[in-house]
């Protein structure tokens, strides 16, 4: 057994152990902390699967932004936990559930061990037109070119999720500042970090978006990093979240899907089909779409995390 193999096995046990801890923990807050650690470890597993783009997304969104969302939810729901303790299942139904889940996991494991190697693949088809598109990163090409329709609809889902979250505000609070009422400004390490990190984070995020055409990275990863910077500033209460009625906020939220759709429709006129890019001109068009997608992601994620307005509009 080489060192790499030993590390792989150690990593797998660590991931499963932390996941088990997340499921078994007594308090929701402890479970959420476990989930954040789990997400970061999972990003390492993705690196081992040669999926750097997925690893970046998992670390930024799956662990980071989801972590902030769930931690604040766990704190606000703490009072509801004690009351629900008596609703816990007895030992017998839990054993039955465990047995059934074990069967499901074992069946999936059998499928994994039985998988053909090498399996079916679209890699050659994804690889072949890269030069034509002027891209070096096959995943970006899949996201913005071959399966552009999926990615566009995904942006629409993000907008729908924001509408869903906002619609949970009361009538009186509609149009107010987004998120729960905040306490006074914090001092100390968090405020310091919130002033120190964003300039660096913004540069790294823009870099990730820009190199996404050729290297691991892209609009999702860069946008997630930008939204993390916005969340740090909001958490340190250096700035208030914007009112949900603000025009610039709404334009930023829908800019990604709108630009994507507009270019998709332009494809009918210029390249003979929906979401077709003009030959020899694909790369600038793709970068143009990515810029607005980044803006959209960076605006959407913080609004989803901080939730509906909790104050009347001033």
């Amino acid at each position: 057994m080489t060192i790499i193999e030993a590390l792989d096995i150690g990593l797998a046990f660590l991931v499963l152990g932390v996941a088990g801890w997340t499921i078994a923990a007594h308090e929701a807050f402890t479970a959420v902390i476990g989930y954040v650690v789990y997400g970061l470890l999972l990003a390492l597993v993705w690196v081992r699967l040669f999926a750097l783009d997925v690893a970046l997304t998992e670390a930024a969104i799956g662990s980071g932004v989801t972590g902030v969302l769930l931690i604040s939810a766990a704190v606000r729901l703490r009072a509801s936990e004690a009351e629900m303790m008596h609703e816990r299942l007895g030992i017998a139904p839990r054993l039955v559930a465990a047995a059934l889940c074990l069967v499901a996991a074992a069946a999936l494991a059998a499928v994994v061990l039985d998988m053909p190697d090498p399996g079916a693949t679209l890699a050659p088809q994804a690889r072949q037109p890269l030069a034509e598109l002027g891209l070096g990163n096959a995943i970006t090409a899949v996201l913005i070119a071959y399966r552009a329709f999926d990615t566009m609809l995904e942006k629409v889902v993000l907008v729908l999720a924001v509408i869903g979250v906002w619609s949970l505000s009361t009538d009186a609070n509609w149009g107010g500042l987004a998120g729960p009422t905040r306490l006074e400004r914090t001092e100390g390490p968090l405020a310091f970090l919130a002033q120190l990190l964003p300039p660096l984070g913004i540069i790294v995020a823009l870099h990730i978006v820009w190199v996404g055409a050729n290297e691991p990275g892209g609009a999702f990863q860069g946008g997630a990093l930008l939204s993390a910077m916005a969340l740090i500033v909001l958490m340190a209460r250096l700035r208030e979240a914007p009112a949900i009625g603000r025009r610039w906020l709404r334009v930023a939220l829908i800019s990604g899907p709108v630009v994507f759709l507009a270019i998709g429709l332009l494809g009918f006129a210029l390249a003979g089909g929906f979401l077709a890019y003009p030959l020899g001109f694909a790369k600038p068009v793709i970068v143009f779409i990515e810029v607005f997608m980044t803006l959209s992601v960076a605006a959407t994620l913080p609004m989803l995390v901080i939730g509906p307005p909790d104050r009347r509009p001033s």
Binding site: L49, V54, L122, R127, I139
Partner: peptide, 15 residues
Amino acid sequence: KGAAAGLAADPVPQA
């Protein structure tokens, strides 16, 4: 398992 054409993995499932 879909590694082919010089790519370490099939980019479609990853995307």
